[in-house]
């Protein structure tokens, strides 16, 4: 039987959650025995090659590209997991949600202390995805099946959750793995 496939992505995140995944150390060898990676920065596969059992989403949606990727993940994955606080709640990027968009862009591209932008225009290359009015957590854009809290969730949290799901067991993480206080 073919190994189940896993896809991962980092949207409006910092790749910290992916780093945490790598933090499972030598268990990564076990993981490769268990699964095959599909679209993911881990193996640099850019497009889905088929249906995946699990999709791990890091980060929320701050621009329209994020929305596209997230929707694609939803269409291709049986189980979609919000990994980390940005995917779950918006996290640090969502700090801008209380600031009007124009002020954000002005600070970033016009008025910022280290900005040199004599004509005062925002970058407008069509390759640059348009920014959303605010940062949305993943579950406000698509249906999410599981949430793994943490900034980032520890390697053990990720490992336990993945192993449980891959073995058709209920995801019942011990309190120590999901408490952050």
């Amino acid at each position: 039987m073919a190994k189940p496939k896993i896809a991962t992505t980092s949207l409006a995140g910092c790749f910290g959650c992916h780093m945490s995944l790598l933090d499972i150390d030598e268990r990564i060898l076990e993981l490769v025995e268990l699964v095959e990676f599909d679209k993911s920065p881990v193996d640099d596969i850019k497009n889905f090659t088929g249906r995946c059992a699990i999709g791990l989403v890091e980060g929320g949606c701050c621009n329209e590209h994020n929305v596209d990727v997230l929707r694609e993940f939803r269409r291709h994955c049986d189980i979609l997991i919000s990994v980390g606080d940005c995917a779950t709640m918006g996290g640090i990027p969502a700090l801008r949600n209380t600031v009007p968009l124009r002020e954000c862009l002005d600070e970033a591209f016009v008025n910022g202390p280290s900005v040199h932008n004599p004509d005062g225009k925002y970058p407008d290359d069509p390759e640059i995805p348009l920014i959303l009015d605010k940062v949305y957590p993943a579950h406000e854009v698509v249906k999410i099946d599981y949430f793994l809290p943490g900034c980032p969730p520890t390697a053990d949290t990720l490992w336990e959750a993945l192993v449980a799901l891959l073995n058709d067991k209920p995801v019942e993480l011990p309190y120590q793995l999901v408490k952050y206080d």
Partner: peptide, 18 residues
């Protein structure tokens, strides 16, 4: 599995204008 409450068009409207 998409959220019906999420309105992409509305979410990008401001950026389109800016």
């Amino acid at each position: 599995g998409l959220k019906r409450s999420f309105d992409l068009q509305r979410a990008v409207a401001e950026a389109e204008e800016l």
